[in-house]
Simulated assay, not measured.
Amino acid sequence: MTHELDAIGLLCPLPVLKLRKRLKALEAGDRIRLLADDPAAIVDVPHFCNESGHTLLDSSEAGGTLTFLVEKRP
């Protein structure tokens, strides 16, 4: 199942903090699409995934909106 988290308008570290909180409630293998416009998210989200063991499946940017697809790992 893919969930969506809109963090547009939030500045560092809020997008990652909200992502971490939402991931805790999900089952292993669930995916979440994070939308953010904070430039720091380009570094913060991959770093968070690497440190927490979750998988960053995709990241892209369009029109100032960053999109990250993260899969929860056990």
Rank of each mutant, 00 (worst) to 15 (best):
I42N: 06
K24C: 06
L57D: 02
L69Y: 06
L66T: 04
H54A: 02
V16E: 03
E61P: 08
L69D: 02
L56D: 02
D37F: 13
C49H: 07
L11G: 02
T55Y: 09
V16M: 05
I8W: 12
C12P: 03
C12D: 09
K72E: 10
F48Q: 03
E51R: 13
V70R: 00
V45M: 00
H3N: 07
N50C: 06
I8L: 13
D38V: 12
R31H: 11
V45R: 00
S59N: 12
C12V: 15
H3T: 10
D37W: 15
N50F: 12
F48L: 10
G29F: 09
L14E: 09
L19Q: 02
V43N: 10
I32N: 06
F68W: 09
N50K: 13
P74Q: 11
K72Q: 05
I42W: 15
H3F: 14
P13H: 13
E71C: 07
D6A: 03
G9N: 02
E27I: 12
L57R: 07
L23S: 04
R20M: 08
L35D: 06
T2G: 03
G64Y: 11
F48H: 02
P74N: 14
F68G: 01
A62V: 14
G63Q: 03
V16N: 00
L10A: 07
M1G: 06
A7N: 03
E61T: 13
K24F: 13
T65M: 05
A25H: 10
L17K: 08
P46I: 15
V43I: 15
D44C: 12
H3C: 07
L17H: 08
C12G: 00
T65I: 15
S59F: 14
F68H: 02
C12H: 12
H47L: 15
E71H: 06
L26P: 00
G64W: 14
D44I: 07
C49V: 13
L5M: 07
S59H: 09
G64L: 13
T2Q: 14
L66N: 03
A40Y: 15
L23G: 04
A25K: 13
H54K: 02
D44W: 11
R73H: 12
S52F: 02
E71S: 04
I8D: 05
K24L: 11
R20Y: 06
L56Q: 05
L14F: 12
C49T: 14
L66V: 09
A62M: 10
L26N: 02
V70D: 04
H3M: 12
D30A: 10
I32H: 05
D58N: 07
D30P: 01
H47K: 14
L26T: 08
L5R: 04
G63W: 15
R73Q: 14
G64E: 06
